[in-house]
């Protein structure tokens, strides 16, 4: 998706870091086993967060050793398949597919070629995933369609556009019982936050290309960082409040780290422009 949702590593305990990386590698493994060799390209931090949030709270972490997809010469600790990983893997394929379809629709013939090629490569995986998660597939399609319409209308409401993406992410959690309620609220505001962070990040580029940008539509082409930061902070506060009501077992410290430390720091770096450099860096680079 975007990669905004990361932990602040320096504040993690070693065991939590190991759990995070094993979940990340486990998601990669799950994508590969379910959808073949290209699927791990869809791997990102955001869906790792989703996996952690969806994991059954009673389940203790278990690890297996497996070859790294990016570098088959090394072996790594990874979480074996579990319902949470499978759900997150299916959902990342579905979301990637519809985002690509959007890109194809937006671009002209030649510019759209890379997206077309990617669609072709992903088609089989998408079909499989959509068959398993028809509800999520329908929601993603509906929400992204709604978003595209709002963008065309040049919608001036920040909340209305962000709401489409927020509802999309909200649908990623099966809504059952109290935990379902908590997850819905958590993911709604996470989706809202991601959408706004992404909009702020794209602001300069969108303006130079004359494209629609929700931040520019709401605050004018200069943007208003103070107001935007406040409204994003409010979503962070709602996420924190929701997190405290849910059951997350041994994954709670990781989720707390991400929500209370990681996201605010990413938000800050998006605002001051340092994010562009940070996000390009290779992840787990020196890790052997």
């Amino acid at each position: 998706m975007f990669g905004y949702v990361r932990p602040l590593r320096s504040e993690l305990k070693c065991k939590d870091f190991d759990l995070y990386r094993a979940s990340y590698c486990g998601l990669c493994r799950c994508l590969r086993r379910r959808f073949g060799l290209i699927a791990p390209l869809l791997l990102n931090f955001d869906f790792t967060f989703l996996t952690l949030a969806l994991w059954s709270p009673e389940e203790r972490p278990s690890y297996c050793r497996g070859r790294c997809h990016a570098n088959p010469l090394i072996k790594k600790q990874m979480c074996p398949d579990s319902p949470a990983l499978e759900l997150a893997a299916d959902e990342s394929v579905i979301l990637a597919w519809w985002k690509l379809r959007d890109a194809v629709a937006d671009e002209g013939f030649f510019q759209g070629l890379p997206a077309r090629a990617a669609c072709l490569a992903l088609k089989g995986a998408y079909r499989k995933a959509a068959r398993r998660r028809p509800d999520f597939d329908r929601t993603v399609r509906g929400c992204l369609g709604e978003l595209a319409r709002l963008e065309q209308e040049n919608c001036p409401s920040l909340d209305r556009t962000a709401d489409t993406f927020a509802r999309l992410l909200q649908a990623a959690a099966p809504a059952e019982g109290k935990q379902g309620q908590v997850l819905e609220q958590l993911l709604y505001h996470l989706g809202r936050w991601i959408y706004l962070a992404d909009a702020r990040d794209d602001l300069a580029e969108d303006l130079s290309h004359g494209r629609y940008n929700p931040v520019a539509a709401r605050y004018g082409s200069e943007g208003d960082d103070e107001a935007l930061a406040l409204t994003m902070d409010q979503s962070l506060a709602q996420m924190g409040a929701a997190l405290q009501l849910g059951e997350f077992g041994c994954r709670r410290p990781l989720l707390e780290n991400i929500i209370y430390l990681g996201l605010p720091l990413v938000q800050k770096s998006v605002f001051d422009g340092s994010w562009a450099q940070i996000k390009k860096q290779k992840i787990w680079r020196n890790d052997t």
Binding site: L8, E256, L265, Q281, R285, N286, D287
Partner: peptide
């Protein structure tokens, strides 16, 4: 988690997020 995130200056922001990305085993 109640740390003064606001007190962090620009350099330490870079540093922290770099830690996140680089580094070896904990």
């Amino acid at each position: 988690y109640s740390s003064g995130m606001d007190a962090m200056d620009c350099c330490s922001t870079m540093l922290c997020l770099n830690c996140l990305c680089g580094g070896g085993n904990c």
